[in-house]
């Protein structure tokens, strides 16, 4: 399989070196195993082709993926609906009595939707309120910081590659690691409190105060994911034609005007992508916040996904029906957000 030309695409340079590296690392042993595997599969595949015909081999190639998608996405989505319309504690739908819209009625049984305490399932509504607050703060700070960072990284500065890497690397860290790193810094006798006492302040128990817990949840989330959004914006900035800036330069247009009149309008499609992605991610927030605060203090940073997880898996009575109903509600929200994104990208292209 090596006698064919590889890497014929225009951006071959980094790829080719990676391939060479991989090939050297993999060595011939891996190649031998692959070759044997190939010969093993070749014969039955040829037989199959004779059986179904050349054209219909497409279905054969498609089959494994569709089986996986059906089994782990489409069937579950249908079962999710079944769960949300049935009651009881059993995991198996056949043993669950039909209860109609009771789960939803129970979930939405609120004195006032602006006061989680007035709801029967108050944890869910606290989750909704927290997720909403988290998403808004996260969205605003994420867009602001990734935009500023992208603009700065797009300037003709020395060591641009290094600085870009600096902002990008937390994207690769696992949420557990991110949360543990910050938990270590923010704990009672941690680095930040040491800094605070050094400049004459008092120690702050960040995870005991609801406001601080939410602040750090947002902060840590922005810290971890900012690099991702910065990259999207940077790609947009670099696609802006240079002659526009040249023209502005000739006219001696002030920088802020260039930013306001050229850069931001042309960056708008990328900004929309960033806003929608940050929204979709924000609504689904779980990992970092869960490890960082555990949803606490009390329910101050409990998010919807954590509520779903705990209702279904981590409570005394596993209430699958209620968790499914909550999932469906979350799914509808996500669906609407995705539709908004699709209609945006369609009108953009």
């Amino acid at each position: 399989m090596t006698d064919l030309p590889t890497g014929i695409e225009p951006q071959a340079a980094p790829t080719a070196s990676l391939l060479a590296r991989l090939r050297r690392a993999g060595g011939t042993a891996f190649g031998a195993v692959l070759g044997a595997l190939l010969r093993l599969v070749d014969r039955p595949m040829r037989l199959l082709q004779q059986l179904v015909g050349e054209r219909r081999m497409a279905y054969v190639f498609l089959l494994p993926n569709l089986v996986f998608f059906s089994l782990f996405v489409f069937v579950p989505l249908a079962i999710d609906l079944v769960f949300s319309f049935t009651g009881g504690e059993s995991l198996f739908p056949s043993q669950r009595p039909y209860v109609g819209t009771d789960q939803y009625a129970y979930l939405f049984d609120c004195g006032s939707f602006f006061d989680p305490a007035s709801c029967r399932v108050d944890h869910f509504w606290r989750g909704v309120a927290n997720t909403l607050r988290f998403t808004i703060f996260q969205l605003v700070s994420m867009v602001t910081f990734s935009l500023v960072t992208a603009l700065v990284l797009n300037m003709p500065i020395r060591g641009r590659g290094f600085f870009r890497a600096v902002y990008f690397f937390p994207v690769l860290l696992s949420p557990v690691v991110v949360a543990l790193v910050w938990k270590w810094i923010l704990q009672r006798d941690g680095l930040l409190n040491a800094g605070l006492t050094m400049i004459g302040g008092q120690k702050i128990l960040f995870f005991v105060d609801p406001g601080w817990a939410m602040f750090w949840s947002v902060f840590v989330s922005v810290w971890a994911h900012m690099g991702f959004y910065t990259l999207i914006l940077l790609a947009g900035l670099q696609a802006i034609p240079a002659d526009l800036y040249e023209a502005a330069q000739m006219d001696a247009t002030p920088r802020w005007r260039v930013l306001w009149r050229i850069t931001l309008p042309l960056l708008w499609p990328n900004l929309i992508v960033v806003i929608v992605l940050a929204l979709i991610r924000g609504v689904q927030t779980f990992d970092e916040v869960f490890v960082l605060t555990g949803g606490g203090p009390g329910t101050a940073t409990l998010m919807i996904v954590q509520y779903i997880y705990e209702t279904a898996f981590a409570s005394q009575v596993q209430n699958f029906g209620l968790a499914a109903a909550a999932s469906i509600v979350l799914g509808v929200v996500l669906f609407l957000l995705t539709l908004a994104q699709l209609s945006r990208t369609r009108s953009a292209s």
């Binding site: 782990f72 989505l77 999710d80 198996f92 779903i308 699958f320 499914a324 799914g331």
Partner: peptide, 12 residues
Amino acid sequence: PITIILVPVYLV
């Protein structure tokens, strides 16, 4: 996303 089909995937 997996966040909304957590329970049924567990069943599967």
